[in-house]
Design a protein around this nucleic acid. Structure first.
Length: 622
DNA sequence: TTAGGGTTAG
């Protein structure tokens, strides 16, 4: 510990000042435990604490969340007679709030008449209510503050607004926005950022974006708030667009920006943007940021590059449960259940306690790989050994696990035994299993349940219709269609995202709105002919070379792949021979190409399709 | 010499 002992001078007041100066320095550098050690040394040296030292030590207790020490400090404050000092009162309130002792904070506030006249004390308590999700207390206090005429400042709103960043409180949030305008505080950049975040977290994306566009000055936090907001609301293309705009305007991204961008790359499979971000992380020295590394693992896993995901994971010196979950999920989603299980066990051996999300990743890995017994063991251990209450997300994995193994009745019994209300995904998993095992009776039952919860989810209607169709039950197919028509449900057209130099283009089936669609379709037509062409005297490779030569391209790196789709930089064209694909994949496959000069890489919008030996792994379609 | 606040991963 780097704490210098201060020499006591003959003058006690000077000594106290020196202690206080040192305490202030440590608190400023966020060296909180050092600050507390120094405070103890100060007491031992016989130097009496005065009002000016308490804010620093109280802040240290608050930051380290040390409620017991905080309470002791409160006694010191009272003993030293400093409690009526406004800044000591505020520090005390803040300390109690940060230690989640909100009633103690309120007691300090109520017992000191002075605090009830001060904006700072209201702000500290409001922030405490907001941090501890006591929204009604926060509103009441804010109303009282205005009623008694205590002035509201920007910090008041910064403390208050985050409490209403959930959809059900959007109305309150809007009225607070009105307050900001009324008090002229909406021009404050921090307040605007705070409101922006509130709108994004409430899912009120348009309002957030409007506010952002209207901001005369935008800071990095403003850009980050919108980027993260888009990312959390699944608007991955908007994230990449805004990120481009940000770079074009010369705003430098920070790790927070890049986490949002990477999660969107993972969503879209935009591997090249992801790679660019990784370069940026390296060149900016952000390589040790755990948030970024977790986001990279997730991005590479979802983009199918498990080797890189593993490399990022291996290089992390401190691996959190999130890091482990990301890599386990990566192996799980690509069917490597055994590796996922091994990693899960390694995680436990390394002393990390799994949380709910970690169990979701291992359970889904088991269900994807058909590891029924192992999955059931984990599910049992979750509650028995780790004392984690399984949620609907866990039950849906286990229903899927049992269902795929043909244990439909057990799956149904499990749903019936659930302590929590089963959601659409749980019944949906059972419905999916009924399709695999052609159980129409149970499918109808599961369908009723799932539709009761998610009446507008078209996927389930399509699933039931396919079950009827496979059983040649045309009456059933018709029944589902009528139901869909009556409910005015229409299947959204599938679409593909095309990533071109980091910009994402959206294509619908038969879509010709893209400015270069003529060239794109001509190229696709040529490729399609090539794929359909029966084996003649020329090899595919020779034909591809001819095709490219016709386009004026002479490349040695021409890739003809019959395995996984290859969109690595070296592979200009990927042709898949004798491929049988589902209807949904059709447009996707038609677009599977990286046109040499145009640099188009295409991936499916909704999920990743992996092709092995010419077969799409979407087994549901077989 | 002093107190209160906003953006990040599965």
């Amino acid at each position: 510990m780097n704490v210098k002992l201060l020499t006591t001078t003959r003058n006690g007041a000077t000594a106290t000042t020196q202690w206080n100066t040192r305490l202030r320095e440590l608190a400023k550098q966020c060296l909180y435990s050092e600050a507390l050690t120094l405070y103890l040394q100060m007491l031992r040296s016989g130097s009496p604490p005065n009002a000016f030292c308490f804010p620093f030590v109280l802040k240290s207790c608050a930051s380290l969340v040390l409620p017991f020490s905080g309470k002791q400090l409160h006694c010191h404050v009272i003993r030293s007679g400093c409690d009526p000092e406004p800044f000591v009162l505020t520090s005390l309130i803040s300390m109690y709030c940060r230690c989640s002792l909100i009633d103690d904070a309120r007691k300090v506030f109520d017992e000191n008449p002075k605090s009830r006249e001060l904006t700072v004390c209201y702000n500290a308590l409001l922030s405490g209510y907001a941090l501890n999700s006591r929204v009604f207390n926060a509103v009441t206090l804010f109303k009282r503050m205005r009623k008694v005429g205590v002035s509201v400042n920007s910090v008041t709103l910064l403390a208050l607004v985050p409490a209403f960043s959930v959809p059900e409180f959007l109305g309150v949030g809007r009225s607070l926005h009105g307050c900001c305008v009324k008090f002229g505080l909406d021009v404050d950049l921090s307040v605007a950022n705070c409101l922006l975040t509130m709108y994004m977290k409430c899912g009120s994306i348009e309002c957030g974006r409007r506010l952002f566009d209207q901001m005369p000055e935008k800071g990095l936090i403003s850009w980050n708030a919108v980027i993260s907001g888009y990312a959390q609301n699944g608007l991955a293309t908007n994230v990449l667009e805004l990120y481009r705009e940000m770079l074009a305007r010369g705003v430098c991204p920070d790790p927070v920006t890049l986490v949002g961008v990477l999660s969107s790359c993972a969503h879209l499979g935009a591997r090249s943007v992801g790679g660019e971000v990784e370069q940026l992380i390296k060149s900016n020295g952000f390589g040790l940021n755990p948030f970024l590394n977790n986001a990279l693992i997730n991005m590479y896993s979802r983009c199918g590059n498990l080797v890189k995901a593993q490399a990022v994971f291996d290089a992390m010196s401190v691996k959190s449960v999130v890091s482990w979950t990301a890599i386990i999920g990566g192996y799980g989603m690509h069917g490597h259940g055994e590796i996922a299980i091994h990693l899960f066990d390694e995680m436990i051996k390394s002393g990390i306690k799994p949380d709910g999300a970690a169990f979701v990743s291992v359970l889904s890995a088991c269900s994807h790989a058909g590891l029924t017994a192992e999955g059931m063991d984990y599910f049992t251990a979750m509650e028995g050994k780790y004392r984690l209450q399984p949620g609907p997300e866990h039950y849906s994995c286990v229903v899927d696990l049992l269902g795929r193994a043909g244990r439909l009745n057990e799956a149904l019994e499990l749903i019936k035994s659930m302590q929590v209300e089963p959601d659409g995904a749980v019944w949906g998993a059972l419905l999916g299993a009924c399709k695999i095992h052609r159980n129409i009776e149970l499918a109808e039952f599961a369908f009723e349940k799932v539709i009761g919860r998610e009446p507008a989810n078209i996927g389930y209607y399509v699933l039931l219709s396919n079950i009827y169709s496979e059983a040649k039950n045309l009456e059933g197919v018709l029944k589902v269609r009528v139901m869909m028509r009556e409910r005015k449900l229409k299947k959204e057209p599938g679409c593909s995202y095309v990533e071109y130099k980091g910009k994402v283009h959206l294509f619908l089936a038969g879509d010709r709105s893209h400015p270069q669609s003529e060239e794109i379709y001509r190229m696709l037509g040529e490729l399609e002919t090539l794929v359909k062409e029966p084996n003649g005297s020329k090899t595919n490779q020779e034909r591809n070379k001819e095709l490219l030569a016709g386009m004026g391209v002479h490349s040695e790196k021409l890739a003809i792949s019959f395995g996984l789709l290859n969109t690595e930089p070296g592979a200009e064209i990927v042709v898949i021979k004798n491929l049988r694909v589902c209807e949904d994949c059709h447009l996707f496959l038609k677009l599977v190409s990286k046109i040499v000069d145009r640099q188009f890489v295409v991936r499916d919008a909704t999920r990743f399709h992996h092709f092995r030996d010419g077969y799409c792994s979407c087994k549901d379609y077989w």
